[in-house]
Nucleic acid binder design. Structure first.
Length: 452
RNA sequence: GUGAGUGUAGCUCAGUGGUAGAGCUCCGGAUUGUGGAUCCGGCUGUCGCGGGUUCGAUCCCCGUCACUCACCCCA
């Protein structure tokens, strides 16, 4: 019998659960500091809710749930596991818009599922940590979302992250300037997105193979080459952004004034936050999901090919459920991506490896089991985390177990102690032990713990 | 969906066309009221699965499955 979890799925043993909970706690705390409220939605959605929202690639990766009976055998599905947290949010907003505040700001930390092939930092079940704001077209939203993401990363201990920033309107303007026809723009974006990975020559080859005319490909690379020239990493962030901004205003400003203005606003508004030092304009950032309409962002660290998170503005998505245009913008942090990098860099604080209990009560013999349990209850009342050794093994074995579990203190009530109303408290680190009246046991344990 | 690499004890991994190995873990003892360190002893395997070649396959060949990595795309 194969006991591995299903492909791309994972079990989390206690140590790992503690790490995950710690990171999730930091994220939720920061989101709340920015005024986001919690939301949860079902793992399963009606399949038509999801289809057609993510683009062709996305649709293929949706985990479908087959119908019961003959329909299922024919491969029909009417339900699917959610692919992200953004589309379910759009559904929720459409369903409850009358009850929700004018500016609905929600955060959501739940698993999503993708029928992808697993890889480093990529799983078929993974947690997204999203924050989204519905109802405002102001770039205050973008700046606050970038600010929150920056705060999260700072608090987790990242110093070398980049918040890549671009705008779908700017991309469209660039493509028009490059003479790329409307039907080829999607192809061109996929190629341009690889600029930092395969370089200008690679992109040119890719553009050509995707049918973009040589002339257009050349022009595009000229535009992009200017903003991705060697040495750009050494340029101070603000100066770099100013340089890119100036080029965009000249090249794209006339055709797409709003997009360029929005980018400049975001840069200005994000300046006071920690994120301000990490935002970098990147005209080659495209992002694959089809629902983005305005600003787009992606969080990058040098030691991971994929991103730690991403997001952007999607002013048309909610309208697909509700009709009309409801402005919306959000960001998503990938929990396991963050954990993979933090694990490799050993960034977790020491306190996470804590023992399952502060004190272990031994069992002297079968007759004293009730007494051991009462002692445990007394210690718990004193506010301690207490484990009771479950069997009347040799006392040495019980000590060995406590030691192997890193439990720092052991309490023993043997025949001698019971006769005098005493408890032996032993500090396993120092090896010191002391017999004390039972009423003082809790204080004695605390004293031992305090010495650590 | 495409490509590559790896599958041997609970874990990490050696190994050879001729009866299966080490370290760690685990269990017992030295120690019948005291753990870590040390010493002594002990358990553990369909060599991923199926087929082929061979007198004989864990080893060579084919297939298959699983895992890992890369591509695509993404968090």
């Amino acid at each position: 019998m194969n006991t591995h979890p299903a492909r791309g799925m994972r079990d989390f043993l206690p140590e790992e659960v503690r790490r995950r909970q710690w990171v999730v706690g930091v994220i939720a705390d920061v989101y709340q500091q920015y005024g986001f409220e919690p939301l949860e939605t079902p793992a399963v959605e009606n399949i038509e809710t999801l289809l057609g929202k993510y683009g062709e690639e996305g649709d293929k990766l949706i985990f479908k749930i087959l119908k019961r009976g003959d329909g299922g055998q024919a491969g029909q599905a009417d339900l699917a596991l959610r692919y992200d947290l953004t589309v379910p949010l759009a559904r929720v907003v459409a369903e409850y818009h009358a009850r929700l505040p004018k500016f609905f700001k929600r955060y959501q930390v739940q698993p999503v599922w993708r029928a992808d092939r697993p890889q480093k930092g990529r799983f078929r079940e993974f947690y997204q940590c999203d924050a989204d704001a519905i109802g405002s077209r102001s770039m205050v939203i973008e700046a606050e979302l970038l600010g929150a993401a920056g705060d999260v990363l700072e608090r987790l201990g990242f110093a070398d992250y980049t918040l890549r920033l671009n705008h779908r309107g700017v991309l469209a303007g660039l493509l028009e300037a490059g003479g790329v026809s409307a039907e080829l723009q999607g192809e061109a974006l996929v190629a341009l997105d690889k600029l930092d990975k395969i370089g200008p020559d690679g992109v040119e080859a890719e553009l050509t193979s995707r049918g973009v005319p040589d002339k257009g490909a050349h022009l595009l690379l000229e535009l992009f080459g200017a903003v991705t020239a060697p040495g750009r990493l050494a340029t101070p962030q603000a100066a770099f952004n100013e340089d890119v901004m100036a080029r965009l205003e000249r090249l794209v400003g006339p055709a797409r004034p709003e997009a360029v203005v929005e980018l400049r606003q975001i840069l200005t508004l994000v300046t006071p936050s920690a994120a301000g030092r990490h935002v970098r304009l990147d005209p080659s950032l495209a992002r694959g999901l089809s629902y983005y309409t305005g600003a787009i962002f992606e969080i990058a660290v040098p030691d991971l090919a994929g991103s730690l998170g991403g997001g952007g503005r999607y002013d048309n998505l909610i309208g697909m459920f509700l009709g009309g245009d409801v402005p919306a913008c959000g960001i998503s942090l990938g929990l396991e991506r963050i954990l993979v990098v933090m694990g490799e860099r050993e960034m977790f604080p020491g306190g996470l490896g804590r023992a399952p209990a502060e004190v272990m009560v031994t069992i002297w013999n079968l007759d004293t089991v009730p007494d051991a349990l009462s002692l445990a209850a007394e210690l718990r009342s004193a506010g301690l985390r207490v484990e009771v050794y479950p069997e009347a093994d040799k006392i040495g074995r019980q000590f060995k177990y406590a030691s192997s579990r890193s439990i720092p203190v052991v309490a023993v009530v043997g025949d001698d102690e019971a006769a005098g109303g005493l408890v032996t408290i032993k500090d396993l680190d120092s090896g010191e032990q002391q017999r004390v009246p039972r009423a003082e046991a809790g204080d004695r344990v605390r004293a031992a713990l305090a010495g650590r």
